[in-house]
Nucleic acid binder design. Structure first.
Lengths: 140, 140, 140, 140
DNA sequence: GTGGTCTAGACCACG
DNA sequence: GTGGTCTAGACCACC
């Protein structure tokens, strides 16, 4: 069964984080169309969270058409979900990047400085994934 | 007088948006040390926002040491503010970029795709600043 | 053997849909008094449904007096069933129509609009039964 | 302030009934774009229902784009809502009528009988609206 | 004052 | 076993 976890430092609503984990799992191929997601009760135990909170995440995903219910059995990933998740993921990233860029430029920040920071952070992320502590900014 | 505006689509707290606008204005040189910021009442009218909300933004900026009260006159930008704002601006941008990158990678998105989107959006922002409608992504 | 099928899009309980199909089959003459209904196992395979679900539908129909068990043989359609099913069918249709009409009027919908929609849908149904794709509303 | 009420005999989920009341109120003109809906707390008291239940109805309506939040102030009817509600109401009625008609015909019911029942019920509804007890089927 | 999140726990229908 | 509804009540941020 797929393992999901939460990042305690994330201040977004828990149900939103859960939904995003599922979206990313589908986009990344860890959860395939037709596959069942963990039951509300199981996942709520796994995440140490109230079942209602998981149920809300699942409900939102259902409304989005990403999950569909199999009566009496649980919820499964819908057929067209992978493509939609990939697209959603891409647009989410695009929208957030756009907002940062727009605000930085509006604050008269040098475009070259923005790009420099972006590449620094990309390197940091890549390093953090390969070795335990790569170069760049070690802390945080 | 300095002109500030808000983006209604931004879901962050309004007081935070206002404070950020002031920080960016100082970092960008639009507001200089010793200069007075608009009064709470004026700014609240200008932004069509509750005066309490503006007051809270100013309160936060005061606590931060960025604004100082001049008895009977209002609030002015503090002396050392510019450098601190530039630093704050840089770190704010860095932190937000980092978060987007981290979450995208965590969702197993291809790093090259992330960079591609970033550069697309940079070009779009640059185009939007020069001409009214440059190349790139026309809509939005 | 009588062929029944289910509409996956129907959100009513499956056991109720099955029972209704049987009622309508009796009312329409496709199942005659004295005739045996498919066994629980056969029907559950035919419908790709849990046997318990079929069993529950049959149980309800038995309680209603529409089916009677023949020891060791299964269930057969009861003698007086046809008339009762016709009546049940009529009342079921009436009740559902009434509900739609009542709610539409309660929502201040123009009565003429309701009738217009009804007749459109009647024509559509008639067309769909005669030719594969008649006039009216092609899509669904 | 707009008065909403619930029909205790309705077995649909309460939150759905509340949402429908709002939709119909908007479609019927009782609630106009820009107008505020009752606060969650007020409406929950008015309907003798848990605030969470009202909140869920409002949340669904927000997701639908029918309501939009005015921060710190409450929820108001969105601009384009009226047309969308009318359309939604029409399609809801159409879909439900279609289902009844389809199932009745599939059960080999005489089309003329279906129409007869429909018109009977239309007359009944019209009568029930004008006089307290018109002709037709008095009870129920 | 507003909406929103989360928890806890009960109850239900369905399969 | 599954999801879904509803209640009750706490706590939060925002305006």
């Amino acid at each position: 069964m797929i393992i999901l976890d939460l990042n305690a430092a994330d201040e977004r609503p828990i149900y939103g984080q859960i939904a995003d984990r599922v979206r990313f799992a589908v986009a990344g191929g860890a959860l395939r169309p037709g596959e069942m997601v963990p039951s509300v009760r199981d996942l709520s135990k796994q995440l140490v969270v109230n079942p209602n909170t998981v149920a809300r995440a699942y409900r939102d995903l259902q409304a989005e058409g990403l999950l569909e219910s199999v009566r009496g059995m649980g919820l499964q990933v819908a057929e067209g979900a992978v493509e939609r998740c990939r697209e959603a993921r891409r647009e989410m990233v695009r929208q957030r990047l756009r907002r940062v860029i727009d605000e930085a430029r509006q604050g008269r920040m040098d475009p070259a400085e923005i790009e420099a920071i972006f590449h620094e952070e990309c390197r940091r992320a890549a390093a953090g994934e390969n070795g335990a502590a790569g170069p760049g900014r070690g802390h945080v």
